[in-house]
Amino acid sequence: MATVSFRITDELKRELDELSAEKGYHLSKLFRRAIEDLRDTMRHGPDGGAFDLSLKDRLILSNQYRILGSVSV
Protein backbone atom coordinates (compact mmCIF):
# COMPACT_ATOMS: atom_id res chain seq x y z
CA MET A 1 0.00 0.00 0.00
CA ALA A 2 1.30 3.48 -0.87
CA THR A 3 1.94 6.16 1.72
CA VAL A 4 0.65 9.72 1.37
CA SER A 5 1.55 12.54 3.68
CA PHE A 6 -0.11 15.93 4.18
CA ARG A 7 -0.50 18.53 6.92
CA ILE A 8 -3.56 19.28 9.03
CA THR A 9 -4.08 21.63 11.96
CA ASP A 10 -3.47 20.40 15.49
CA GLU A 11 -7.14 21.00 16.33
CA LEU A 12 -8.33 18.90 13.37
CA LYS A 13 -5.88 16.14 14.36
CA ARG A 14 -7.30 16.06 17.91
CA GLU A 15 -10.86 15.92 16.58
CA LEU A 16 -10.00 13.13 14.14
CA ASP A 17 -8.20 11.17 16.86
CA GLU A 18 -11.34 11.38 19.02
CA LEU A 19 -13.59 10.40 16.13
CA SER A 20 -11.45 7.44 15.13
CA ALA A 21 -11.36 6.25 18.75
CA GLU A 22 -15.17 6.51 18.97
CA LYS A 23 -15.56 4.50 15.75
CA GLY A 24 -12.89 2.00 16.70
CA TYR A 25 -10.85 2.76 13.56
CA HIS A 26 -7.19 3.53 13.11
CA LEU A 27 -6.80 7.09 11.87
CA SER A 28 -5.45 5.83 8.54
CA LYS A 29 -8.67 3.86 7.96
CA LEU A 30 -10.74 6.97 8.68
CA PHE A 31 -8.73 8.94 6.10
CA ARG A 32 -8.93 6.12 3.56
CA ARG A 33 -12.71 5.94 3.85
CA ALA A 34 -13.08 9.72 3.57
CA ILE A 35 -10.81 9.86 0.52
CA GLU A 36 -12.62 6.94 -1.13
CA ASP A 37 -15.97 8.67 -0.53
CA LEU A 38 -14.61 11.90 -2.01
CA ARG A 39 -13.24 10.03 -5.03
CA ASP A 40 -16.61 8.34 -5.61
CA THR A 41 -18.47 11.64 -5.30
CA MET A 42 -16.11 13.34 -7.72
CA ARG A 43 -16.36 10.44 -10.15
CA HIS A 44 -20.10 9.75 -9.98
CA GLY A 45 -21.75 12.84 -8.51
CA PRO A 46 -23.13 13.45 -5.02
CA ASP A 47 -25.94 10.88 -5.33
CA GLY A 48 -23.54 8.09 -6.30
CA GLY A 49 -25.02 7.66 -9.75
CA ALA A 50 -23.59 8.69 -13.05
CA PHE A 51 -24.96 11.80 -14.69
CA ASP A 52 -27.31 10.49 -17.37
CA LEU A 53 -28.44 13.44 -19.44
CA SER A 54 -29.94 13.15 -22.88
CA LEU A 55 -28.71 15.42 -25.64
CA LYS A 56 -31.85 17.53 -25.18
CA ASP A 57 -31.20 17.86 -21.43
CA ARG A 58 -27.57 18.80 -22.06
CA LEU A 59 -28.59 21.53 -24.51
CA ILE A 60 -31.19 22.90 -22.09
CA LEU A 61 -28.66 22.92 -19.26
CA SER A 62 -26.07 24.60 -21.49
CA ASN A 63 -28.53 27.32 -22.53
CA GLN A 64 -29.59 27.91 -18.92
CA TYR A 65 -25.95 28.26 -17.95
CA ARG A 66 -25.38 30.82 -20.72
CA ILE A 67 -28.49 32.78 -19.73
CA LEU A 68 -27.52 32.85 -16.04
CA GLY A 69 -24.01 33.91 -17.00
CA SER A 70 -25.33 36.90 -18.91
CA VAL A 71 -27.67 38.12 -16.16
CA SER A 72 -26.08 40.77 -13.97
CA VAL A 73 -26.95 40.78 -10.31
Rank of each mutant, 00 (worst) to 15 (best):
residue 1 M to E: 05
residue 2 A to Y: 10
residue 3 T to F: 08
residue 3 T to Y: 04
residue 4 V to W: 08
residue 4 V to F: 15
residue 4 V to M: 12
residue 4 V to C: 09
residue 5 S to N: 15
residue 5 S to T: 15
residue 5 S to F: 12
residue 6 F to P: 03
residue 6 F to Y: 10
residue 7 R to M: 13
residue 7 R to A: 12
residue 8 I to K: 09
residue 8 I to N: 06
residue 9 T to E: 13
residue 10 D to N: 12
residue 10 D to V: 11
residue 10 D to G: 15
residue 10 D to P: 11
residue 10 D to I: 07
residue 11 E to L: 10
residue 12 L to W: 05
residue 12 L to V: 07
residue 13 K to N: 15
residue 13 K to E: 05
residue 14 R to I: 02
residue 14 R to F: 06
residue 14 R to E: 07
residue 15 E to I: 04
residue 16 L to W: 06
residue 16 L to K: 06
residue 16 L to Y: 03
residue 17 D to T: 15
residue 17 D to L: 13
residue 18 E to H: 08
residue 18 E to K: 03
residue 19 L to K: 15
residue 19 L to M: 13
residue 19 L to F: 14
residue 20 S to F: 02
residue 22 E to A: 08
residue 22 E to F: 01
residue 24 G to N: 09
residue 24 G to M: 08
residue 26 H to G: 03
residue 27 L to Q: 08
residue 27 L to P: 04
residue 29 K to I: 12
residue 30 L to E: 01
residue 30 L to S: 05
residue 31 F to W: 11
residue 31 F to S: 06
residue 31 F to N: 06
residue 32 R to T: 07
residue 33 R to F: 02
residue 34 A to P: 04
residue 34 A to V: 02
residue 35 I to Q: 02
residue 35 I to S: 03
residue 35 I to V: 13
residue 36 E to P: 00
residue 36 E to F: 00
residue 36 E to R: 00
residue 37 D to W: 00
residue 38 L to D: 00
residue 40 D to W: 01
residue 40 D to T: 01
residue 41 T to Q: 01
residue 41 T to P: 00
residue 42 M to C: 01
residue 42 M to D: 00
residue 42 M to G: 00
residue 42 M to P: 00
residue 43 R to Y: 02
residue 43 R to D: 08
residue 45 G to N: 02
residue 46 P to N: 03
residue 46 P to W: 02
residue 46 P to V: 02
residue 47 D to I: 01
residue 47 D to V: 07
residue 47 D to H: 01
residue 47 D to C: 03
residue 48 G to N: 08
residue 48 G to M: 09
residue 49 G to L: 07
residue 50 A to M: 04
residue 50 A to R: 07
residue 50 A to Q: 03
residue 51 F to V: 07
residue 51 F to I: 10
residue 51 F to K: 07
residue 51 F to Q: 05
residue 51 F to W: 05
residue 53 L to C: 04
residue 53 L to M: 05
residue 54 S to V: 10
residue 55 L to I: 13
residue 55 L to V: 12
residue 57 D to V: 03
residue 57 D to A: 14
residue 57 D to G: 03
residue 57 D to I: 01
residue 57 D to R: 09
residue 58 R to T: 02
residue 59 L to I: 06
residue 59 L to R: 11
residue 60 I to D: 11
residue 60 I to E: 07
residue 60 I to N: 10
residue 61 L to P: 00
residue 61 L to Q: 06
residue 62 S to K: 10
residue 62 S to T: 12
residue 63 N to T: 15
residue 65 Y to K: 13
residue 65 Y to E: 08
residue 65 Y to C: 09
residue 66 R to N: 15
residue 67 I to C: 12
residue 67 I to H: 14
residue 67 I to Y: 15
residue 68 L to I: 14
residue 68 L to H: 11
residue 69 G to W: 14
residue 70 S to G: 15
residue 70 S to W: 11
residue 70 S to F: 13
residue 70 S to K: 15
residue 70 S to D: 14
residue 71 V to R: 15
residue 72 S to I: 14
residue 73 V to G: 13
residue 73 V to Q: 11
